[in-house]
Design a protein around this nucleic acid. Structure first.
Lengths: 338, 338
DNA sequence: TTGTAAGCGTTATCAT
DNA sequence: ATGATAACGCTTACAA
C-alpha cells in the first residue's frame, strides 16, 4: 500500500503538498498539482483511514447493537440504518448481543477503542452497564424501541399507546364491541403500553374489555397458537382480536382456521408490524406498520447532531407514529350471518 | 481517553513498561506491575485500536457485502457471519450494495483503507471490478452463493445441482411422475443448475419433464402467483411442483388454494430455503434447507486461513449440501381419491 | 506556494 | 528489568 511518502517521492514534492492536493485546502501550483495527481494515480494511493482516525477527529464508524439480526423487524431496521450510514459517510459496525450483558460490554469496549462516532442500540435493558461505559466517553448514543426509566438517555421509540388506540379504533369503527387482545410479555413496557392504549380507547366508548379476553403471549408464533386455543376453550368468544404482533396473529389464525373458524367472517384479526407475510397468507392480515425508516434516520441524525454540538445535553427523545394497513382479516361483525 | 502516556506518568514508569505489563511479553518487576495495573484501573485506560492497527498488523475487521439485508435468507446468513466473527475476535463491517457496482467499489475502497482482514461477498457478479481492486492488495476475500467463471476466485456455494436432485427424488419417491418446476430467472446460474439436477434425476427414471411444465419465475412471491395461474390455465396439470424457493411456492399455494385446489391432496408442492413461514402456513410447506451456518463459518475460516498462510494460493472453493425438510404440502398422488 | 516538523497512540528495537 | 526512541501514515501549525 502506497503512502503519502511514496506519492511525494514520485512527484518530487513534500508529503504536505500531497496532502494539500488531496484535501484542496490551500492553493497549490497547477504544475505541481498535476504531478501529484499523476503520482497518486501511478501509485494507486489511498489515504489510510486508520492513520487519519488516529491523527484527527474523523468520522468513521457508527456501531449498531441488536438483540437479533435475522428477525423480521430488526432486519428491516438494520437495512434502513445501513442506508442512513451509507448516505452520511459512515461505516456500519454490527453486533448481535442476544441481550447478553457480557457481549454488550465487550462490543462497547471495542467501539470505544475504535473511537466510533456513535452507537445505536436496539432494545437494551436499562440495567445494562453500557450506559455507564459510554458516559465516561464523549461518544453519543441513542436507544431505539425501548423506553427507559433513566431520563438522561436519549431514546427513539414508537408511540405504543397510540398504536393500541389505532387498533382499537379500527375494530370499533367496524362495529366490534366484544374484543380480545393477545399481548407480548407484560415484563416488556411496550406490551403494557399497547394494551393500555387499546383498552383506553374502548373505555372511552364505554366498552370494558374483560380480563378473560386478554391473553399474555411472548411475541412468538407458538404463543399465537396457544392464545387461539385459549379463546376457543372459552364459552364466549370475542368477535375481533388484536394481536400485538403479526407472528402471534398468524399463529392464532392457523389455529382458529384448523378449528373450523372462517376469518374474517367468524372472527376479525388484526396484527402489528406489517411483515411481508401479511400479504402471503389467506386471508391477508390487517396490520399496523412501524416507521422503521424514520427511526433509522432519526437515530443517525441524532448522532450527527450530537457530534456537531458536543456541548448541548442532546437528550431530545422522540416518539413516532404507526399506521394502519387494512387488509382482508378484519370485517364488520354484522356481516356474520350474511 | 487515557493513553499509554497517561498511565506511565501516573505509575511513574515509561510507556514501554506499561505496554509490557499489558502484553505480558517480558518479565516485569512485581512491584512495578502492580503500580502499572493500578494506574490502568485509575485512568480507565483502553488500548486504542486505531493506533494498534496503524502500528502493527492487527486483526480488526471483516467486511461483509450483501445485495440486501432485510431478506429472509441473507439475514440468516448475516446472523451466522456475525456469530463467526464474534467468536474469532473480528468486528463486522456490513454494507448493502443492491448489487450496484458503484456502491460496491466505494465500500471496497473504504475497506482497503481500513486495512480489513478480509471481505465476504454474497452474490457479486463476476463482472464486478472489486476483484481487480482487491487483487491489487493482499486482502483475502471469498464469494458466497454464486459460482463464478473466473477460477482464481474462491467461492463457497451450495451444490444447487444436488438440491434439484433432492427435490426430484422426494417427489419421485412419493410416486409422482408428472411434475412441474417454478424456477428462478434463467439468467442466474443457480436457477439453471437446480433445474438441471431436477430434470436429470427424473430422466434417470425415464421420465421426461415437458417444457410446458416449467415456469420461469424471479424468486419473488408474485411470480409464484403467476406460475400458479399459468399451470391452472393448462389442460393437463402436473401432480407435483417444485418451486425453487419458498416465496414463490407460497405465492403459488395462495393462488392454487383460491382456485379451489386442496394441497397436498390435489397437488403436492415443495419449496426451497426452509424459511420460518414454512411452519406458519396451512398446509406447512415441505422445503429444502440450506446450510447457512456452515457457509458462514467456512467463509470466516477461509479468511483466517488466508491470513495465516499468505503465500499459498488459497483458492480452495467448496460446495455444500442441502437437506430435505418434509412437512405437509407433499403427499402421494395415489391418495388423491382417498 | 511549498517544506519542515510535531504529534496522534502504539509496538519493537536497542541500549542501559 | 526498564527507558529512550524510531516508525506506522497522516494533518497541521509554523517557517521559509
Amino acid at each position: 500500500m502506497a503512502s503519502l511518502y511514496d506519492v511525494a517521492k514520485l512527484a518530487g514534492v513534500s508529503i504536505s503538498t500531497v496532502s494539500r492536493v488531496i484535501h484542496n485546502t490551500v492553493p497549490v501550483d497547477k504544475g505541481t498539482r498535476r504531478r501529484v495527481e499523476d503520482a497518486i494515480k501511478k501509485t494507486n494511493y489511498r489515504p489510510n483511514l486508520l492513520a487519519q482516525g488516529l491523527r484527527g477527529k474523523s468520522r468513521n464508524f457508527i456501531g449498531l447493537v441488536v438483540p437479533e439480526i435475522s428477525h423480521n423487524t430488526f432486519a428491516r431496521f438494520i437495512d434502513f440504518v445501513e442506508q442512513a450510514t451509507r448516505e452520511t459517510g459512515f461505516e456500519l459496525l454490527l453486533r448481535n448481543t442476544n441481550e447478553n450483558p457480557e457481549l454488550e460490554e465487550q462490543f462497547i469496549d471495542k467501539l470505544i477503542r475504535l473511537h466510533v462516532s456513535g452507537v445505536i442500540f436496539v432494545r437494551v435493558s436499562d440495567q445494562s452497564r453500557i450506559f455507564r461505559m459510554l458516559n465516561e466517553t464523549d461518544i453519543p448514543f441513542v436507544v431505539i424501541d425501548r423506553a427507559l426509566k433513566k431520563e438522561d438517555i436519549p431514546t427513539i421509540v414508537l408511540d405504543n399507546y397510540a398504536a393500541g388506540r389505532i387498533a382499537a379504533e379500527h375494530l370499533h369503527s367496524l362495529g366490534h364491541t366484544e374484543v380480545g387482545c393477545i399481548t407480548g410479555s407484560y415484563d416488556i413496557f411496550l406490551s403494557r403500553e399497547r394494551l393500555r392504549g387499546f383498552t383506553d380507547y374502548f373505555l372511552e366508548q364505554n366498552i370494558v374489555i374483560s380480563h378473560s379476553n386478554i391473553f399474555e403471549g411472548d411475541f412468538k408464533f407458538a404463543s399465537g397458537n396457544q392464545a387461539a386455543r385459549y379463546f376457543l376453550s372459552r364459552q364466549h368468544m370475542p368477535t375481533a382480536i388484536w394481536s400485538q404482533n403479526d407472528l402471534m396473529a398468524i399463529g392464532a389464525i392457523k389455529e382458529f382456521t384448523n378449528a373450523g373458524l372462517s376469518i374474517p367472517k367468524d372472527l376479525s384479526i388484526i396484527g402489528m408490524d406489517d411483515l411481508e407475510v401479511c400479504n402471503m397468507i389467506t386471508p391477508s392480515l390487517t396490520s399496523i406498520s412501524q416507521p422503521f425508516e424514520e427511526m433509522a434516520r432519526k437515530s443517525v441524525e441524532a448522532i450527527i447532531n450530537a457530534i456537531d454540538n458536543p456541548k448541548t445535553t442532546q437528550q431530545q427523545s422522540s416518539s413516532l407514529h404507526s399506521k394502519l394497513i387494512i387488509r382482508d382479516s378484519t370485517a364488520s361483525p354484522y356481516n356474520k350471518e350474511g
